[in-house]
Write a protein that binds this DNA or RNA. Structure first.
Lengths: 276, 276
DNA sequence: CCGAAAATGGAATGAAAATTCCATATGGGA
DNA sequence: TCCCATATGGAATTTTCATTCCATTTTCGG
């Protein structure tokens, strides 16, 4: 028995975990600080790695990494890993119970709801780090950077995404055209094979967007896509496609992963163009 | 040479795995087909689940699930899981070395840049939870919910924010009007004191937005604001104002906190209106 | 309806991982 | 400089997991 200086209560969600990580950063001994630092920047690895993996990557011994988990407030690595795995496994009986605690759902308190969306945002950003799609980010960026004019297409929920891109690209002097009104797009001279089209659509997919993109592709315009599902029809004709997954709260999704990905993409396009 | 009914070579990537799954679907015995069917629909679970998890979820015994993995061509579950984990990690032993270098510099590698934005996103969401402004979220929501028509105003970086709100509110049958073109706004009959204006502007503040909002306020229209600074001129005449802080990467800001806050706000407005 | 071949599930085994323990190293204060 | 408290890493232990084995059941051809 002794003074457990550590906090007794384990974090119950990702948000709390990150907070505690940041907050303890300063008061930890050297090796544990290494763990905190690495983990903070590679949260998405926890769900799919073993202690020795994380320890090695942090540059410490496995036992040290476990001590780190305990310093954070968990009973050990397994408990911490469990927290990060829940987001992938919400349907399983064992996990459903935990999930129920984390998510006393629906729009009651406002702070409550905001917290839920923030948590969902964290998760979305985590799976963004995990996504296979990211590997293609560079090649999509160079594809878009070569375009004479970059056409942006997206409706409903996706419209915010492309309008944000439009703003960023404009700020970096990349010639980009945001197609706000479907219909005036298909005037033939507007898009040429020298251009590129970046189309965004989430399930259930917008017929208009698909249609416009398909016609562009048939006309020889390189089409790149962003979606939240592999079943997206854009896949049929797009050069490359990025995929993001947004977690939802009470049936609503924010745009954290999408906006973050496309912001990074826009900056990449901007910097690649500047180099040439 | 010999007659192993199973295919000798294991799939080397996810695509191959899926193909083989689909292709074998018909020629498998009942229980194994169950495994194939469930796994096909929940591929993402493999990386973070144990055999017994997958077996239970598929409705079979663990040993059966392993036999299923072998039928696909893997040596066992571990090998199959390894394939799925690699997709998530891109995990290299020499990680911590790179890490030290990468941290300070900016827009070089693409995955790195995305990681930086994800990191900034986490921070933004954290400060969102901490911010004082959020306490006012409920009262802003009820203010907006009482409006006959909810006018949305935002330009540049803020435009994506209000257009997202416009979509969400529309989806919930809240009468909202997105002002895309400044200038046609100030036709007097368009906004009345029965309405409300939600204006978004980030530093450096858009003159147009401030001006429009001020005129609306002088005409008796309740104005609510969202900004990233307390120095925002909207403060001078807005009923209430929300504040978010977005972390930046290489001079660029994503919209994680803003989008998350306004998404929550929109849902609140929608649910409050439904109650009356 | 019978028998052989295949399929299935539970128990036994072996491997790997998480966690604890302990001897050694390190750093800060007297 | 010495001493004590704390930190650290490797070895030992325990737990969990993957895999194999085998008895039982099911299926299908005759």
């Amino acid at each position: 028995m002794s003074e457990n200086e550590g906090i007794a209560t384990p974090p119950t969600n990702i948000t709390q975990t990150i907070e505690r990580l940041d907050q303890m950063q300063d008061e930890l001994p050297k090796r544990l600080k290494q763990c905190a630092s690495f983990t903070r920047r590679h949260l998405h690895l926890v769900a799919v790695s073993t202690v020795s993996d994380m320890a090695k990557a942090s540059g410490v011994a496995p036992s040290v990494y476990i001590r780190f988990c305990q310093a954070i407030g968990f009973s050990g690595y397994s408990e911490m890993q469990g927290l990060f795995r829940v987001q992938y496994t919400s349907f399983r009986p064992d996990y459903e119970q935990r999930l129920a605690q984390v998510r006393p759902d629906v729009a009651q308190g406002s702070g409550q709801l905001l917290g839920e969306f923030a948590e969902a945002g964290h998760k979305s950003l985590l799976s963004l780090g995990n996504s296979v799609a990211n590997e293609g980010l560079n090649s999509v960026a160079s594809g878009l950077a070569q375009a004479r004019i970059l056409h942006l297409l997206g409706m409903r929920r996706a419209f915010a995404v492309v309008s944000n891109m439009s703003y960023l690209l404009g700020k970096m002097d990349v010639p980009a055209l945001l197609h706000t009104d479907v219909g005036h797009l298909d005037s033939p001279p507007l898009m040429t094979p020298d251009d590129a089209l970046f189309a965004v659509t989430f399930a259930p997919f917008s017929e208009d967007v698909i249609q416009q993109a398909r016609e562009a592709a048939e006309r020889g315009v390189p089409v790149y896509g962003l979606s939240d599902s592999e079943k997206c029809p854009l896949f049929e004709f797009a050069r490359e496609e990025l995929i993001v997954h947004e977690h939802e709260v009470a049936g609503f999704r924010a745009l954290n992963a999408s906006i973050t990905l496309t912001t990074a993409l826009s900056v990449l396009v901007g910097s690649q163009r500047r180099e040439s």
